[in-house]
């Protein structure tokens, strides 16, 4: 054994452990493509649930899309929702079990196209749930078609010459819309491409779950994400493309952090 190997082996001991996968993530290899942001966000949710000690009280709602199998990875109870309906499913669960923690996990097609009504109305009702929104500006699962959040000029399987506003309309900034809703308690946009960004995103997810306990409205966390396969770039190049193109359109940071609106602002006079 070389001196170096010996030294490494002296470090690799339980007492020196500084990071290990949370037991809430099971040992199955995730089905996601190499470099996919879903894996990071799954881990952050699992870590937050573990650190808050709420595994027994948490029910997740997975979407239709790449994250449909989210239920395979995090060791909690799950309901798998129809395409776009996760906020309604989460509403149903939360309403009959208000003491539980309920979160939905959706992509851009699910949350901002087919499920727009369910998304906006769940938040407008101020449902005390957490909504995680993965925005990678493309439909990953079905093979890289245009999403509501696809950028102008972005090439996808259904915009092979780039998204054209005349033909396809504009990127939907649904998180900005959501921030306007009186039922939204906390609306933030995060990313997970660097260690610093990941640590910030985790804080935001933790805060979202803590807000749920306070019952002051919907906590909404968008994670601007990559789709290497859909974008046809390497994972590293995808991060660069995201920083250069997605961030100007979807700037990071908190959009709202004030709790649900005061209902008296909307009350009838007489």
């Amino acid at each position: 054994m070389s001196v170096l190997t010996e030294r490494i082996n002296q470090i690799i001991k339980p007492e020196n452990l500084v990071y290990a996968k949370t037991p809430l993530l099971n040992d199955d290899a995730m089905h996601y493509c190499p470099g996919c942001s879903h894996g990071v966000v799954h881990r952050l949710i699992a870590e937050v649930i573990e650190e808050m000690g709420i595994q027994e009280q948490t029910i997740g709602v997975s979407p239709v899309g790449c994250a449909v199998f989210a239920y395979n990875y995090i060791d909690i109870d799950w309901a798998e929702a129809a395409h776009g309906r996760a906020p309604a499913v989460a509403t149903g669960i939360k309403r009959v079990m208000p003491e539980k923690y309920v979160f939905s996990y959706q992509g851009d097609g699910d949350l901002a196209a087919i499920g727009t009504a369910e998304t906006l109305h769940a938040i407008n009702r101020g449902e005390n749930i957490v909504m995680i929104f993965i925005n990678n500006a493309i439909y990953g699962m079905t093979g890289g078609q245009m999403a509501p959040t696809t950028l102008i000029g972005q090439i996808t399987a259904t915009t092979p010459f780039g998204r054209n506003a005349d033909l396809n309309g504009y990127p939907l900034k649904i998180t900005e819309l959501i921030a306007q809703l009186p039922g939204a308690a906390y609306v933030t946009r995060q990313s997970v491409q660097t260690p610093a960004a990941v640590r910030k995103a985790k804080k935001a997810i933790r805060k979202a779950f803590e807000i749920q306990a306070k019952k002051i409205g919907t906590a909404f966390v968008e994670v601007v994400s990559t789709c290497s396969s859909g974008w046809k770039l390497t994972p590293v190049a995808s991060n660069k493309w995201m920083e250069d193109n997605m961030f100007p359109q979807y700037p990071l940071g908190d959009l709202k952090d004030s709790g649900r609106a005061d209902a008296d602002l909307y009350r009838i006079k007489g």
């Binding site: 029910i59 309901a79 929702a81 499913v89 149903g92 309403r95 079990m97």
Partner: peptide, 26 residues
């Protein structure tokens, strides 16, 4: 008993889906 007016029949039935999944009579 919870009573909720949903935004559509689609949302209604999926709320039922979620709540029924929790073992409730909905």
């Amino acid at each position: 008993m919870v009573v909720l007016q949903a935004e559509s029949e689609i949302a209604s039935i999926h709320m039922v889906y979620g709540a029924a999944g929790a073992g409730k009579r909905v």
